[in-house]
């Protein structure tokens, strides 16, 4: 499986581990919230990185005190029409100040991809049947943005008033 970062396919360095499976030695693992909560102390002692996977009804506030120990938070889009994780990503970035990797999985489609990046999601796991090139195309569809989020894209408002940070040539 590949993951996409800024539209570019990357090898997936993370292993998703079922709740009853043994943790592969030395690998970066993603565990469920339930497993994280049950085995927090052991998982924190691990030498390799740990990420947690949240279902769409699990708010990141449930791991707000654990974020220093989590290198990745994976957010589920069970259906592409379920937009809760857009807000979860913003809560992670803006409210909780999370700087680790935010990953989206589930029904993550190209037509929502730009929104995900704008909300602070770094990587996505695209469904196997989808053309991965489409995701890079989706990022080129817009050059104008109205809402300030904490991504690097300048808003129309800031550009209008000369508030945009100058881009080094």
């Amino acid at each position: 499986m590949v993951v996409l970062k800024n539209g570019v396919p990357q090898p997936n360095e993370w292993v998703r581990v079922a709740d009853d499976a043994t943790l592969p030695e030395g690998a970066k693992v993603i565990v469920s919230l339930e497993r994280w909560q049950a085995e927090r102390e052991t998982l924190r002692q691990r030498n390799a990185a740990v990420g947690v996977s949240l279902k769409s009804d699990q708010s990141p506030l449930l791991v707000k005190d654990d974020l220093d120990h989590l290198s990745l938070v994976a957010l589920e889009f069970p259906k592409f029409t379920d937009g809760r994780a857009f807000s979860y990503a913003r809560v992670l970035r803006d409210r909780l100040g999370y700087r680790g990797e935010i990953r989206a999985f589930g029904q993550v489609l190209r037509d929502q991809y730009l929104f995900m990046l704008r909300c602070g999601i770094d990587t996505i796991e695209p469904p196997a049947e989808k053309r991965v090139e489409g995701y890079a195309e989706a990022l080129k569809e817009f050059s104008v943005f109205y809402q300030p989020t904490n991504d690097h894209r300048e808003t129309a408002l800031r550009l209008r008033h000369g508030l945009a940070e100058s881009v080094a040539a």
Binding site: D82, G83, F86
Partner: peptide, 13 residues
């Protein structure tokens, strides 16, 4: 209008 247009967080309410 401008704030709500293609709001990245609130397009799948």
């Amino acid at each position: 209008r401008q704030w709500s247009t293609l709001h990245p967080e609130f397009s799948y309410l």
